[in-house]
């Protein structure tokens, strides 16, 4: 798996590519956490991954907790139905902010 990190309109956008499972979750964690360390407004884009296991959910949750604690914010964007169901089943959709796309998360960040 690969992780793309880019700056879009003042928001750090992390885009994992491929499968986030047990064997790749460490790379995902390193990528997301380096972005957490460098910016306060972070978005994770999900439309380039095929699969995410609970190990990946944990990374997203950690990023959310870290950002909230430091006065930052995390938005989850461009989430296909299949990945959304992983968030819905585990109940994470209730505590994480999910938006259709980056544009619609603007208000949340402001």
């Amino acid at each position: 798996m690969e992780i793309k990190i880019a700056e879009e309109d003042g928001i750090t956008v992390v885009t994992p590519v491929g499968r986030v499972d047990t064997s790749t979750s460490k790379a995902f964690e390193d990528g997301v956490m380096s972005a957490v360390a460098s910016g306060k407004k972070l978005a994770i884009r999900f439309n380039e991954i095929d699969y995410m296991s609970s190990a990946g959910l944990r990374v997203v949750l950690m990023a959310g907790k870290k950002l909230t604690a430091s006065g930052g914010a995390l938005a989850l964007i461009d989430m296909p139905e299949k990945i959304f169901s992983v968030f819905r089943i585990s109940g994470f959709d209730k505590i994480l902010k999910i938006f259709p796309n980056l544009a619609e998360s603007k208000e949340f960040f402001n």
């Binding site: 959910l57 949750l61 585990s90 109940g91 209730k94 505590i95």
Partner: peptide, 12 residues
Amino acid sequence: DPGMALGIWEET
């Protein structure tokens, strides 16, 4: 209706 996974939010 699933509750949230265990260990995340105290008030689940």
